[in-house]
């Protein structure tokens, strides 16, 4: 056990999800007849974190940094290359297909794209009811129908909409169907993969409020993935910042927004537009040069160093581990105050 795990997981903590040294490498193959692996996309590269029961852990970062992959690995929708994912102490990575199917009662997912996440040939009612059938949670036809109706009204849809097909709903309503589907099995844990990114701002707030209400009502635990830092601040208890397959900073919501320690976190925060011309122009922007490098060929040392304005020669060599620099505030930057010697 590294220092990270010991401290992220405190004694007496009610940890629901524990991710340890998670790696997901996608092989890149070439060749037509005989496929040869020519390299790996290191989408997630040694990521460890915990999610406590009833909390929301926000996961932010630019697109392509591995947020979705992390979420899917946690749910075992992708089988990770290495590492372990403990759900209430049980290792999901060592379960077989049948055991995992049983675990799906306890963990669910909400997708980003309200268009591709609903089967166009199923009605809203069928979509919401399918988990009940698959998991054998409906004892008879009446119970099934009542539960579907209950789920629909829970997410703010009219019961009469059950017979409509997805294309007859707006983006926000589709997202509500997705939420209802995730809730159908009464899960404990939901990975929300950018659930509001594809929605209009006025609708985003509706869905965020809905997710918060449901969390309170059913004591849900969320892994909330997003690239919008303002939404993440609103909904999360703690926030993890990802960059190129690594977690570079984790801290409580207030700490990370008030005193970000990693240069990447600082740059990200400074780029968030503020809807007020006076404030937005006065604010200092940390311009981040260039773009996220390819995870096929990540930079040596600290993966952020080519874009970092604080980088020194050392950063090119040392891979900084995630260290606790203040209580509950972890950062992976050798220049962060309190980080100590690399």
């Amino acid at each position: 056990m590294t220092a990270v795990e010991r401290t992220q997981r405190e004694p007496g903590d009610d940890v629901l999800i524990e991710v340890k040294h998670l790696k997901m490498y996608f092989p890149v193959t070439s060749g037509v007849l005989v496929q040869r692996t020519v390299g790996y996309i290191k989408a997630v590269d040694d990521v460890s974190f915990v999610v406590r029961r009833g909390e929301t852990l926000g996961l932010v970062g630019e697109s392509g940094c591995g947020k979705t992959t992390t979420g899917r690995c946690v749910l075992q929708l992708y089988r990770p290359t290495a590492g372990s994912v403990l759900f209430d102490g049980e290792d999901l990575c060592s379960m077989n297909g049948r055991e995992l199917r049983g675990m799906r009662r306890y963990m669910q997912v909400i997708f980003q794209d309200p268009y591709s996440s609903l089967n166009p040939r199923m009605t809203a009612g069928d979509i919401v009811g399918e988990p009940l059938l698959v998991q054998g949670l409906a004892t008879d036809r009446r119970a099934y129908r009542e539960r579907v109706a209950e789920l629909l009204s829970l997410v703010g849809l009219r019961t009469s909409m059950a017979d409509r097909f997805p294309h007859e709903f707006s983006g926000g309503q589709r997202q509500r169907i997705g939420v209802a589907r995730a809730l159908a099995v009464n899960p404990q844990f939901i990975v929300c993969d950018e659930p509001v990114s594809a929605l209009d701002v006025s609708i985003q707030a509706q869905i965020v409020n809905l997710l918060e209400e449901l969390q309170e009502k059913f004591d849900l635990t969320y892994l909330f993935i997003a690239h919008d830092l303002s939404v993440v601040r609103h909904i999360s208890d703690r926030v993890a910042v990802m960059y190129l397959g690594h977690i570079v900073e984790i801290a409580g919501r207030n700490a990370i927004y008030a005193t970000p320690l990693h240069p990447y976190t600082k740059a990200l925060l400074s780029a968030v537009p503020i809807p007020d011309p006076v404030i937005d122009t006065q604010r200092e922007r940390i311009p981040l040069a260039g773009e996220v490098p390819s995870p096929l060929n990540p930079p040596s040392g600290c993966v952020f160093h080519p874009r970092c304005w604080m980088a020194t020669a050392e950063c090119q060599q040392v891979i900084p581990e995630l260290r606790e620099v203040q209580t509950g505030h972890f950062v992976a930057c050798i220049h962060a105050p309190g980080y100590g010697s690399p």
Partner: peptide, 17 residues
């Protein structure tokens, strides 16, 4: 309806219904 980073966090967002 949008949460703002420059203002204190509110308990609930205020969407357009």
């Amino acid at each position: 309806s949008v949460p703002r980073l420059d203002l204190p966090r509110t308990e609930k967002l205020d969407p357009i219904e």
